[in-house]
Amino acid sequence: KSVIEEDLNYYGINLDFEFDIIKTGYLQEASVGRGFYLSGSLEELLERSGYKLSIRFPGRRDFIVAQMGSIFVVSIILLVIVTLSSLLIYRFYRRERDLSGNIVDFVNGMTHAFKTPLTNISLANSMIAKSDITIKDKKIISYTGIIKAEHRKLKERVDALLKTTFTETDQPSGHELIDLSVVTRDIADSFSVQLNNSGGSITLKEHDTGIYLYGNPDLFYIALSNIIDNSLKYSRETAEIIIDTGKKAGRVFIGIDDNGSGVPQEYLADIFEKYFRVADDEKVNPEGFGLGLYQVKKIITLMGGSVSAKNSPAGGLSINIELPLVTEK
Rank of each mutant, 00 (worst) to 15 (best):
I81A: 11
I187G: 02
Y143R: 12
F289A: 10
V32E: 05
F106Y: 10
F17Y: 12
L87K: 11
A113W: 09
R91D: 08
G255Q: 06
K297V: 02
Y11D: 09
N226G: 03
Y275E: 13
R94W: 04
K130G: 05
T24D: 09
N108M: 15
Y234W: 10
M110L: 13
D20Q: 13
F166A: 05
E237K: 12
I140L: 10
S100Q: 15
V182Q: 09
S122I: 09
L195E: 02
R97H: 08
F289K: 01
G215I: 01
I319A: 01
A249R: 08
K248H: 09
S122A: 14
T24E: 12
Y267D: 15
Y37C: 13
V104A: 15
L302R: 00
T327D: 04
F72S: 15
R157Y: 11
I13E: 02
Y221K: 12
G260P: 08
A249I: 06
D186M: 13
K153T: 03
P264K: 04
G200A: 01
S75K: 14
S308W: 06
S306A: 13
D189P: 04
K274Q: 12
V284W: 07
T83I: 09
F191H: 00
F72V: 13
L177G: 05
S41E: 07
E29A: 12
E44M: 06
V284E: 14
R34S: 15
R95M: 15
I55Y: 00
D270A: 13
I133M: 10
T165K: 04
L195K: 00
P117S: 07
L232N: 03
Y51D: 10
L27T: 06
Y143T: 06
I4R: 02
V284I: 11
P313F: 09
P58Y: 03
Y10F: 13
T116W: 15
F253I: 05
N259E: 04
S142I: 08
I243M: 08
I146G: 03
Q265R: 06
S173F: 13
K138S: 09
